[in-house]
Amino acid sequence: MSVLSLQSVSLAFPADRDISRTRLVLDGVTLHLASDEFIAVIGRSGSGKTSLLNLAAGFLKPTSGRVSVDGVDITGPAADRAVVFQDDALYPWLNARDNVAFPLKLKGVAKGARRLLADELLAKVGLENAGSKNIWELSGGMRQRVGIARALASEPRFLLLDEPLGALDALTRTRLQQFLLRVWSDSKTGALLITHSIEEAMLLATRVIVLAPNPGRIVADIPANFGRQLLSGKSLQDIKDSPEYRRLHDGLNGLIHADSEEEAA
């Protein structure tokens, strides 16, 4: 089992007007993601959620602290941490199959083999007939499924999900949440999900992390098991009606909006 670790990680950007000063985006964040966990990170805008994911992916380097996989510091992005983006980031010059096969092509897998693997992954995400479709012929939800299949193709140990369902309509979003849950439980990868939605975080994650803004820091790290209930066949409505769900929902809601009420007062 692998562990992706952020240890007392801080990140500072140059301040907006005065480049000699810096603005602290994340302050002393420590987080360990094991490869059987699903961590959801929620927080208001400006709490550094996306920066946290960019640090884990290796797109950003921490100002201080360490980012490591199994104790080895990361040097940048690598195939063990595949990212799924909010704006799918699929390549429009490739069809759906070739997009999924892209990470395999980078690794030098032969053409026949990577077609086969890509078709297998497309079937896994329920798009067995969409292989030769152009990207712009697919709906938003289908594109995100292709994006997830593409990320899985690189056989990552960790899936980094940067609000992948954020731009979808409510119905598609609910469907894809359950889909994502099943993909994660089948694939034995650790997942780090950035999201705006408390509900999404609660239904998918095994741990919900709450970030507070200015500077971004972890204010809560709460285990959740609604996803496992969902996987074991309990209905979504029953889960949402349960007192423990409501209690956690209210608690998280309070945490996220805590200091915004202070500001208003």
């Binding site: 992916a57 195939a79 980078l106 690794k107």
Partner: peptide, 21 residues
């Protein structure tokens, strides 16, 4: 788009692969 390049980087692409592909 920066995401196009970042996606390739997160799948382990080399600089040359990013340039050409």
């Amino acid at each position: 788009p920066a995401d196009f390049i970042n996606a390739a980087r997160s799948f382990g692409a080399t600089r040359l692969q990013i340039l050409l592909q």
